[in-house]
């Protein structure tokens, strides 16, 4: 694991893995969505709106998966002081927030024709909205850590605290009466017919690969920013007069 503490080793892997994951993810997710939009039969009750499933479920999974990634990376950072772990946690925040927002938006659009309402304050919807706000808070904290010299441990601790919400989201439809349906996919069981399940699994796979690609791209960007800063600072130290006259921006 500590082999990757060296950014060179990480970069040699990420250089080819990033475009591979991004392109592979886009192709698979795009194919699954086209399948879901054009070739899947309408649902017995919901009719055509069942097609929103192929966006809504991967987005929900990656929104929650994004925070889980933040929590695990934060744990690795707090315990092993692994510098790349802090980077990985920060990198998962924006895509996680984006997928949470997509999950809420597609869910709302789905709710109008099926439930008859855009939004209700039931356990599932409320806890998912809380997750979106947690992402915003985490992004703000991580930026403060980077720019204003706040300890990197603060966002890491927040990332761990926020993980409490993940099992609450997961169990919300079981613990509380809710308008949102109970889980369709439980350990080894599926209440979703194969005609919907197969494209759904492809969509989840495609979006997950895409998510991995975006996280790697974010990590590379953050790492490059840090390296550039460090290099400019070193240059400024080597030639103070030059640095002062020209400025380092």
């Amino acid at each position: 694991m500590h082999g990757f503490a060296n950014p060179k080793r990480f970069l040699s892997l990420a250089t080819w893995l990033t475009p591979l994951l991004l392109v592979g993810g886009l192709l698979i997710a795009g194919g699954a969505l086209a399948w879901g939009l054009l070739f899947v039969p309408p649902d017995r009750l919901m009719g055509e709106t069942v097609r929103i499933l192929f966006l809504h479920v991967p987005a929900a999974w990656l929104g929650m998966g994004g925070w889980t990634a933040i929590a695990i990376s934060s744990l690795a950072f707090l315990v092993w002081r692994h510098p790349l772990a802090a980077l990985a946690a920060r990198a998962a925040a924006v895509p996680g927030a984006a997928f949470t927002a997509i999950c809420l938006a597609t869910g709302s659009i789905w709710g109008r024709p099926t439930w008859g309402t855009w939004w209700v304050w039931d356990g599932r919807l409320t806890s998912m909205l809380v997750l979106l706000f947690l992402f915003f808070a985490y992004i703000a904290l991580a930026q403060a850590a980077e720019r204003e010299g706040v300890s990197e441990r603060i966002p890491a601790i927040f990332g761990l605290l926020g993980a409490v919400n993940i099992p609450i989201i997961n169990r919300s439809v079981v613990w509380w009466n809710s308008l949102h349906q109970p889980p369709s996919l439980t350990m080894g069981k599926s209440a979703i017919d194969a005609a919907f399940l197969v494209p759904l699994l492809f969509a989840v796979l495609g979006f997950s690969l895409l998510f991995g690609g975006v996280v790697l791209a974010r990590m590379r960007a953050l790492l490059a920013d840090r390296q550039a800063e460090a290099r400019l600072r070193r240059k400024a130290m080597e030639a103070p007069a030059f640095g002062q006259v020209r400025g380092v921006s």
């Binding site: 991004l22 886009l26 997710a29 969505l33 939009l37 055509e48 709106t49 097609r51 929103i52 966006l55 809504h56 987005a59 924006v94 895509p95 984006a98 997928f99 927002a101 997509i102 938006a105 597609t106 659009i109 789905w110 109008r112 024709p113 979006f207 895409l210 690609g213 975006v214 791209a217 974010r218 960007a221």
Partner: peptide, 20 residues
């Protein structure tokens, strides 16, 4: 509703990946 959801979801995903 299906088209609105797909436009939003696909647009959002592409924008995020492109930005990254």
């Amino acid at each position: 509703f299906v088209i609105a959801a797909y436009a939003l979801g696909v647009g959002g995903t592409l924008a995020m990946a492109g930005w990254a």
